[in-house]
């Protein structure tokens, strides 16, 4: 059952990720990106990490992608036109770099022996509790640094908007 779910989710996630790149209408790209995010949330549920799955849905599939969609709708970009001169030197350079990166990733992945699928279950403790405990003990410093970074980003946005008006 879980294996079956894994393959279904994989097809959906990878398939929609491919469509994100291939389709030429920005709104469709965003829609397939949302589908990719939902697929990822499904993987987290398979790993028994319900909390992370829900956060994935709320933050990525919900909040962030809505903003993407908003901007694209309001700018009314209907089509991304393919570049006129299709295969110049930049195209080949890009292709080369992409393949080099793919090869590199392949080598790295081949080197790793993946452990059997481990689930995030600890007896008698809910997933949420576990995440919270780790965040506020082991990973307190990175957590605080991340929140300061986010604060800086918020202040940055406010400053940028002020300058224009």
């Amino acid at each position: 059952m879980e294996t079956l779910m894994f393959y279904i989710l994989s097809v959906v996630t990878v398939g929609s990720a491919v469509f994100v790149v291939l389709l030429r209408r920005p709104v469709y790209n965003v829609l397939f990106m949302i589908l990719t995010m939902i697929g990822l949330a499904g993987f987290f549920i398979l790993l028994r990490a319900e909390f992370v799955a829900m956060v994935q849905l709320i933050v990525y599939a919900g909040a962030i992608m809505v903003l993407f969609l908003f901007v694209i709708m309001l700018l009314n970009i209907d089509q991304i036109r393919p570049p006129v001169q299709a295969r110049d030197i930049r195209w080949w350079a890009g292709a080369l770099i992409a393949f080099a990166l793919f090869g590199l990733i392949l080598v790295v992945i081949k080197g790793i022996v993946l452990p059997a699928m481990e689930t995030a279950v600890v007896a008698g403790q809910s997933n949420t509790e576990l995440v919270a405990k780790e965040l506020f003990t082991t990973y307190l410093l990175p957590f605080e640094i991340a929140s300061v970074l986010l604060l800086a980003a918020i202040i940055g946005t406010v400053v940028l908007i002020r300058k224009q008006s």
Partner: peptide, 25 residues
């Protein structure tokens, strides 16, 4: 009885916004 029930509700309802947004667009 989902142990993250309330989060599930917020997650689904934030996806529901897409229906309205896309219907309008």
């Amino acid at each position: 009885d989902v142990n993250v029930g309330i989060l599930l509700i917020f997650a689904i309802s934030s996806l529901g916004a897409y229906g309205v947004l896309l219907g309008g667009w």
